[in-house]
Computed example of a mutant assay.
Amino acid sequence: MSEDEQADFDEEIQEERFYTIPLAKKGFELTPRWKRSKKAIKVVREFLERHMKPEGEVYISQDVNERIWENGIKNPPRKVRVRVTKSIDGIVRAYLA
């Protein structure tokens, strides 16, 4: 994480975890090809809500978003590795690991 990103989020971190999120297990074969990257973002958000139990918002960083969308809307990666932090306020943020 760059110094600018660190300066933006000077909140106290309660916990930090690393996850490999399996995107392909959520029925990409059944999803139309032109909706797959959109669905992958939703899968990441649902995964983080289930595992981190946020009291506030779930934020996905620009790097994670670009990693999912780098091959276009039709071909997202089958899994993505993220570093997830949870602040004392209950806000969850996901960064590329």
Rank of each mutant, 00 (worst) to 15 (best):
N65Y: 13
D63Y: 01
M52S: 09
V80K: 02
D8N: 03
A97G: 11
R45W: 02
Y59I: 14
F47Y: 15
A94V: 02
Y19E: 08
K39V: 13
S87Y: 06
P32E: 13
K35T: 13
V80H: 01
V80I: 15
K42E: 15
R81I: 07
P22K: 10
K79G: 06
D4K: 10
I13T: 06
K39C: 07
W69V: 02
I13C: 01
P77V: 08
K39G: 04
L30Y: 06
G56E: 12
E15L: 09
E46V: 03
K86S: 00
F47Q: 11
K53G: 06
N65H: 09
H51T: 14
R93T: 13
M1T: 12
R50T: 15
L96P: 13
N71Q: 12
D8T: 01
Q62A: 05
E3V: 03
K74R: 13
G90F: 09
D89N: 12
K38Q: 15
I88Y: 08
Q14K: 11
I21L: 07
T85H: 00
L23V: 08
I13F: 05
K26A: 14
S2V: 00
V64M: 05
H51S: 11
T31R: 07
I91W: 01
Y19R: 01
P77F: 09
G90W: 04
G27W: 04
R36L: 13
D8C: 05
M1H: 08
R36Y: 05
S2C: 04
E49T: 07
I60C: 07
D63M: 03
K53L: 12
R78Q: 13
I21P: 02
I13Q: 04
R83V: 00
V43L: 04
I73H: 08
I68R: 00
S2D: 12
I13R: 05
T31H: 01
T20Q: 08
E57Y: 06
V84H: 05
K35S: 12
K39W: 06
